[in-house]
Design a protein around this nucleic acid. Sequence first.
DNA 1: GGATCTAAATTTAGACTCTATATTAATCAC
DNA 2: GTGATTAATATAGAGTCTAAATTTAGATCC
Lengths: 397, 397
Amino acid sequence: MTVTQATATPPLLRRVNAGKLLGVLSNAGVMTGTGLIQATGLTRATVHAVCNDLISMGWVVELDPGRDDTAVGRPSRRFEFNSRAGYVLGIDIGDAKTTVLLADLRGETVAKAGRSVSDVKTPGERTDIVHETIVEALASAGVCDPQVLAAGVGVAAPVDRDGNILVDDEFWRRFDAGLAKRLTELHGWPVLLENDANLAALGEQWRGEGRDVDDLAVLLAGERFGSGLMDSGRLLHGSRGGAGEMVYLKLVEGVGDTHGIARIARDQGAAAVADPAVDTILRTLDGPITAEQVFTAAGSGDEVALGILQHVAGRTARVVATLGILFNPELVVLGGAVAQAAKALLPDIERHLATFTSTPPRVAVSSLGDAIVSVGAVRHALNYVEQHALDLNLKPA
Amino acid sequence: MTVTQATATPPLLRRVNAGKLLGVLSNAGVMTGTGLIQATGLTRATVHAVCNDLISMGWVVELDPGRDDTAVGRPSRRFEFNSRAGYVLGIDIGDAKTTVLLADLRGETVAKAGRSVSDVKTPGERTDIVHETIVEALASAGVCDPQVLAAGVGVAAPVDRDGNILVDDEFWRRFDAGLAKRLTELHGWPVLLENDANLAALGEQWRGEGRDVDDLAVLLAGERFGSGLMDSGRLLHGSRGGAGEMVYLKLVEGVGDTHGIARIARDQGAAAVADPAVDTILRTLDGPITAEQVFTAAGSGDEVALGILQHVAGRTARVVATLGILFNPELVVLGGAVAQAAKALLPDIERHLATFTSTPPRVAVSSLGDAIVSVGAVRHALNYVEQHALDLNLKPA
DNA sequence: GGATCTAAATTTAGACTCTATATTAATCAC
DNA sequence: GTGATTAATATAGAGTCTAAATTTAGATCC
């Protein structure tokens, strides 16, 4: 048998150089030809050839010639990454709320939409709500589907490296398996599923407390503990997407379950009120006790509420300690609904933490608020776009 | 200012293709030109050009032309990875024993040497012993230092991604910091430090129970628990090399410290003997109780010893559970001195494990015995060689 | 032994991308 | 306008690849 030889000419070098140049341009501002020569080590001829390619593809725009550094000589050609060459979506499908962020290719938010979902019954209903929210976000910015290059989607379930949701529960499997496919059918862009805590870690590293930190854990600490783990800038998934799963907490002394800060505060607040022997401001409040009320009461000096927060701090410290010791992140970021309130707990958490390990991680509170997952989802989509930039066809508005 | 242009022509494509071809050849047997064309997708002209390069560099040898598949036509040129183009060392510097493995570039062991070290006092002494063991291994195979391309070295301390040992203890820091530098001075080859449990994970994935497993944890379970974690084929290090550190076990219910299987078995055996009310074969044995004796006694039906092993199994299951849940490996391999004995505990461990998680990892016992770290160290060195192959100068014997 | 067949090696031509250098162009200062 | 300066453009040349034509080494058949 005669072997037929390879047919297509892979313009490998050109591809490599185009990727390199696009990388430089995408996280720098306006750059001159000379600047690119210095940044990439390539020749001027090559830089111009590649830039012309990138311009014709739509990834780069050329500005009027001008001068940045010197005031003499022929003005430089000036190139800029075309951050409006396309858009990405960051979608957080939470239990109670679906959030959609539309961002340009620099990650700047262009539009935002949200829907609170109280009681969703079927996979179809859920998908519909997500779809509506997306349509709203796109419409408010005047962006149409063909301009969207990818969507990152965070779900509260294990997701493996390939974006497959892996849960045993039949209902959720049907819901989630259908979701990505359905959204792609409806809109045409690729849907990249990822675990919500993992996206939170991406978000924190990108635009949160974890900038320049490559070994990072994010602890979502609201109703239930969940964690996203990043080692050397890479998210951990484990074999079935289960990395970061916190069920082991039931084996941890002084923790015992995966209940988060809000839940514990609320439960203990309610328990205190239920005991007539306990004296606390909380009793004077209407309706069922909320976590916020406990934090507020502690802020105004209520001894019982303070005691609850002490307990919560100790408990949280144990959770952080286990993560900190086994994974050795440089930083653990506390996120979720309670993040801001948890700021007051930081000193206590750090104090407890020091009793568990002599090399504790830094602990910080997320400043991304409830956008922590959707911001990470945007980053996830951007990563995909950067990876596949030279294979994507950009469509003008 | 005029920008001077890049000077050197980087033969990037050729490098890429050479790497690709070398990769194919290094884990295949004899290959024909045609076979390489099919494996790489390159043209015959390119394949031959690159092969000629690799032959002149020493990485590949050409055999007499022959035919493998068909019996007609012109015989093929036949190429083979030159597994004796150089050698690597895998060194395990354990508490009690230093083991040195000399392997060829396919990883086949060529020589082996070991030294038991009872009481070493100074960093210098330790280095001397390691050096002696290396010299012995090299001599017994007639290999000289210039033929050695790299050495992987496992130590029982945190090691970061760059091979730096990070311990607070001043003594160990001096010892370890000096070690790599000193060995390189003495022998000339690069020394790649890595944590011993991490190397164990590399070893298991390469030649142990973890073949074809990319998400893997190795639990060294002898005297003290230690773990090496691999996610998607990559070892975890954490920010200060501390990933896999087990001190969190002091927070785990039913565990409480990092004592390993051997230590617990021995301690509980001794405690049983110390209690005159307890009836056990162990009492009839001379000298202090050892872990082996407890396992043997259990094998012969001693109730007390069986009870101890039950306890050890439950305890180990908790350790495996925490790793399995948080990190979600496909497989947890038990390694260390007790590995073979622990085989008997597997059913019990798995039974307990199922009570902690509904998706437990597979659990297996290492078959690499006390070579688990040194085999991993060989793999670590081979990884380095593969990575840097085209930059290394091969020296003939 | 010589013709014939096959598969692979070798040769040759051509395309592409890069570097390096020479030439041209645009702007400012005087 | 002239000269200095800096960058763009054009040109030449070196490498590396693909693709197609040609040659070669052995097996088979008559």
